[in-house]
Design a protein around this nucleic acid. Structure first.
Length: 930
RNA sequence: GCUCGGAUGGUGGAACUGGUAGACACGCAGGACUUAAAAUCCUGUGACCCUUAAAGGUCGUGCGGGUUCGAUUCCCGCUCCGAGUACCA
């Protein structure tokens, strides 16, 4: 029989499922290895050919690691809470749980078709109450925690309360809200219960706070910063506005420093680490106080406190609360106009319009903290209310924006360093040179000046060193239905956790998935949904990233562990520890990957997990883009479409309009006309202007989407060529990290390769036929080359090059007519991780017990088979290759030179000159310089 | 603007620490088999020049320089494409 991939693949997929071949135990004498994929959101569209790219790579790696003697955890699950199922529910009334279930089943079927070696017994679904019980549990743990800067970790809130009872707030170093009170132990103890709770809430790692949020009226919810793109929601593209709301937040800022430091300890792509660093946005600087009349003062944040003497004015954000009080009678009109003008500008305009310099003078002056000089106070929209203190000290000689502002409004520009140049043209932010015009730091260099300035400010009580972060606390609530309920109820307006034994707090049924008439979230519609039957629950649900911020630990819990009263048993966590290899897209750089690191560190502080960082090595697979095909409809003189189509190469002779055409009816850009007529019946009688008898389509790279008819489903490819071919082809396409358009054109080559491989062990009548004879030297050489090559390639995630090498190997063995058992058997193991089905079949045909291939031993590379006595040296003259010579590798350089120089053919290139120098690199090249 | 990544035949890509540029595959052209098609197999395929042929030559990895016996690889300066980010003080 010829290579019957359909039967073979179905057979082994069934075998693996029935025998739980890939079920893994939480203990073993083998070393552990944890390979994780970013789990998918099960959307209604199913998988397209781009989704499995990362899964194929991780599966190859997992299978390879098993062959190399590792106990491999390779699980899969679904991030199944989310907006699309809810949107669908709003439109159709269908419960999101049902939609989700349907989609998951479809995903599972598609994944199974590709022969992945997942341990499905460990599957997780974030929308499953047995799972989100533990998401809620983490929320409760965060609520019961505060961040102690002394120990630099999260601690039990009870410890904080004890501290308050014993010594009040004195000496406390904690991450908390800005408006915490100072109090003595006595004052604390005399507070009422609710006053105490209010104060404690300011320290909890998850807390309620009125915050400005990104409110999307169309979606009826709050969005995180990374879910908003240019003022529109990332999902759906609806406009987003700013709104003040009471919101649950997570104090991720407490971990900002550790999140930056941790990046140096993990093996992630540099661009991704850089993105996280920028997102966290650490700036080291100082807070400086400029006094106003009376007790009032303006505090600014600066990263260049050394330039303090260059400050010639202060600028407040128009929204700054101090503005009103600062505005003098005479300036009132101007300031009001400016504020009104700023308000009119949308966030978008304000960002886009960075060239126009605008601002207004308040009429007031502040006092320079050291020199005591009067400094005018302005407002301008280039200062952002949300960053730092919403006020800056303007140093026009050192900062270009300040320079532009000073130039426009005729404010003084003072040089502060003797190294500054061209200050009449632009600002010069140099840190070189010695300070001038700078009072106490004159003559000093940058470092000393900064230190001295901070010391002086501290002495005067006018400032201090300060580290500022761009990172904001993460808002942890959505006014949506399809998410984890927050395990909180309210009593006297204060939040309380439900009892732990009441977990999970199950999502209640509602009649509609829309906000209530009074504008409350959908959970407000649930009937009699009250804690202990009387207390109001929190009505918002958790955001999409909640469930994905710890899921890799749930996989460590085996099926039997799932009923235990813990998210994963301690011994399982101490065995698996962390994820050794994580594969997924870079779009999660500042969302999922940051929140996961945050939760991991938090759980580490409590001792529930053992590693500071959850994902040791991370690889971003590239996006697979769509490759759209077009036909060109001829337009007549009146601008109407005709019933004629012209082939791509001839379209310049006509006026045409391009129409998307289903890529599945186009092969190598040649359109199947009959299928086209079936695809667009209205053109059944169309005329086609062909080139060389063919209709050639145009091509464009676009996002893969249904509307562009460029979606290629893995199911179709599997049906036509088989899963092994698809797996190898996706790898063959190019480097894993690179984004590339999907193109099925080359797939035949991989398919042919697998058939050729199958034929090695079969005779011309397709009967299995291997020989027990001892392989030849050449056969061993071909085998050991591939043993080494695949090992090297997989270890450096260069999957595309090993596919090429497999082709070379099988081509060589075919030329050698090799059907030796000793060769085929080892080759089957080497290829097994890439093409698991065909290799399982051959493995069994070779007489091995069915299903044992996955735990076979990867063959040991023996360099002896690759030892050569001779090498064909390229001989170059002045760097230009002229000829090749076979020369024994055992000869000395002098002997080699003699052989080369005595060669007759070489003489003509030497032009009668004697060589000046001969470069000899063993096993590489010989270069003669004349 | 800043940060990062990239540019190699008709196409996807290979060349790992500087050492025969274009592996492997697609496509294309020609041929074998076939009544025909599919499948399969064989040959050729970077550009240009020279030649009946055999062979040979010149150029060639986005552009311009440099280092080196030798550069796709290292350095300097640019162009274009992609990603992220942005009045962040």
């Amino acid at each position: 029989m010829d290579y019957q991939f359909r039967d073979i693949e179905k057979k082994w997929q069934k075998f693996w499922a029935e025998n739980q071949t890939f079920k893994v135990e939480n203990s073993s004498d083998k070393p552990k290895y944890y390979v994780l994929d970013m789990f998918p959101y099960p959307s209604g569209a199913g998988l397209h050919v781009g989704h499995p790219l990362g899964y194929i790579a991780s599966d190859i790696f997992s299978r390879y690691k098993r062959l190399k003697g590792f106990n491999v955890l390779h699980p899969m699950g679904y991030d199944s809470f989310g907006l699309p199922a809810e949107q669908y529910a709003i439109q159709t009334g269908q419960h999101p749980a049902i939609t989700t279930e349907t989609n998951i089943n479809r995903y599972r079927e598609q994944l199974d078709n590709l022969g992945f070696s997942f341990d499905w017994s460990r599957e997780v679904r974030t929308s499953d109450p047995g799972y989100y019980k533990w998401t809620q549990w983490v929320f409760m743990l965060l609520f019961n925690s505060w961040y102690n800067l002394e120990s630099d970790k999260a601690e039990n809130i009870e410890e904080l309360i004890k501290k308050f009872e014993k010594s009040g707030s004195s000496g406390l170093r904690a991450v908390c809200d800005d408006d915490v009170e100072s109090f003595t132990a006595q004052e604390w103890n005399s507070k009422s219960d609710s006053e105490k709770q209010k104060e404690i809430l300011k320290y909890r790692l998850t807390y309620l706070r009125e915050s400005t949020v990104n409110w999307c009226p169309a979606l009826g919810t709050v969005l995180a910063n990374d879910e908003v793109k240019d003022g529109y929601s990332e999902r759906g593209g609806h406009p987003v506005e700013q709104k003040k709301m009471m919101q649950w937040s997570m104090r991720i800022t407490a971990y900002a420093d550790r999140l930056i430091q941790g990046l140096d300890t993990i093996d992630w792509p540099d661009p991704l680490k850089e993105m996280q660093r920028n997102w966290i946005g650490k700036s080291v600087g100082a807070l400086v106080r400029f006094e106003l009349v009376g007790d009032a003062y303006i505090e600014v944040f600066t990263t260049r406190v050394d330039t303090l003497y260059g400050t010639t004015f202060l600028v407040l954000a128009p929204e700054n609360e101090l503005v009103e009080g600062l505005t003098t009678e005479g300036q009132k009109q101007e300031i009001q106009n400016y504020i009104a003008q700023t308000k009119k500008k949308s966030e978008l305009d304000r960002m886009a319009d960075t060239k126009t310099v605008s601002g207004a003078f308040t009429g007031s002056y502040a006092k320079h903290p050291i020199s005591g000089e009067a400094i005018p106070v302005w407002i301008a929209d280039y200062v952002l209310a949300g960053y730092g203190t919403g006020a800056v000290m303007a140093v026009p000689s050192g900062d270009q924006r300040d320079w532009l502002f000073a130039t426009k409004f005729g404010l003084p520009i003072i040089a502060i360093s003797d190294a500054q140049v061209d200050l009449d043209v632009q600002a010069d932010p140099t840190k070189e040179g010695n300070y001038i015009n700078s009072g106490i730091v004159n003559g000093l260099k940058y470092k000393e000046a900064t230190a001295k300035m901070i010391a002086k400010l501290e002495e005067l009580g006018a400032g201090k060193a300060k580290v500022n972060f761009r990172l904001r606390d993460a808002i942890f609530g959505r006014q949506r239905y399809w998410g984890e309920p927050v395990p909180v109820y309210f009593k006297d307006g204060l939040p309380h956790l439900i009892a732990q034994e009441d977990l999970p707090l199950v999502l209640p049924e509602v009649d509609k998935y829309l906000p209530t008439e009074s504008g409350e979230p959908p959970l407000g519609r649930a009937e009699n949904w009250k804690y202990k039957g009387e207390l109001e629950y929190e009505l918002s649900t958790m955001p999409g990233w909640a469930g994905s911020s710890w899921y890799w630990y749930r996989y460590m819990a085996s099926q039997e562990d799932r009923n235990k009263d813990v998210f994963a048993p301690a011994d399982a966590i101490s065995y698996w520890k962390d994820v050794d290899l994580y594969i997924g897209g870079s779009e999660h750089a500042t969302g999922h990957l940051l929140y996961s690191r945050f939760w991991n560190k938090f759980l580490k502080d409590w001792g529930y997990v053992v590693e500071e960082e959850p994902f040791k090595k991370l690889i971003n697979q590239g996006m697979i883009q769509g490759r759209s095909n077009f036909v060109y409809r001829i337009i007549d003189g009146d601008g109407r479409g005709t019933n004629k189509f012209v082939s791509y190469g001839l379209k310049s002779d006509y006026t045409t309009s391009a129409l998307h055409v289903d890529v599945n009816i186009v092969q190598n850009e040649i359109l199947d006309l009959d299928k086209f007529k079936a695809f667009r019946p209205e053109f059944a009688n169309a005329e086609f202007i062909l080139e060389n008898g063919k209709y050639i389509c145009g091509v464009e790279v676009e996002k893969m989407s249904k509307s562009k008819f460029n979606v290629v489903s893995p199911d179709d490819i599997v049906e036509r060529y088989g899963a092994d071919t698809l797996r190898m082809y996706e790898m063959f396409l190019g480097p894993l990290e690179q984004s590339k358009p999907w193109n099925t054109n080359g797939i035949e080559g991989v398919f042919k390769f697998l058939r050729k491989f199958w034929k090695l062990a079969h005779n011309d009548d397709f009967n299995f036929n291997v020989s027990d004879d001892e392989p030849s030297k050449a056969e061993y050489k071909a085998l050991h080359k591939i043993i080494r090559k695949v090992e090297e390639d997989i270890e450096r995630f260069s999957f595309n090059t090993s596919v090429s090498s497999f082709m070379i190997c099988v081509n060589e063995l075919t030329d050698l007519k090799c059907n030796k058992r000793k060769i085929i058997q080892d080759l089957v193991i080497v290829l097994a991780s890439y093409a698991p089905h065909i290799t399982e079949e051959l493995w069994t045909l070779l007489g091995n017990a069915p299903g044992t291939l996955s735990v076979a031993n990867y063959p040991v590379f023996n360099p002896e088979y690759l030892v050569e006595n001779e090498f064909s040296y390229p001989i170059s003259v002045n760097g230009k290759t002229r000829m090749n010579l076979n020369i024994s590798l055992s000869l000395s350089q002098a002997e080699v030179e003699e052989i080369v120089l005595s060669n007759e053919d070489l003489k003509k290139y030497l032009e009668g000159k004697s060589p000046k120098k001969i470069i000899f690199v063993k096993n590489k090249i010989i270069n003669i310089v004349i």
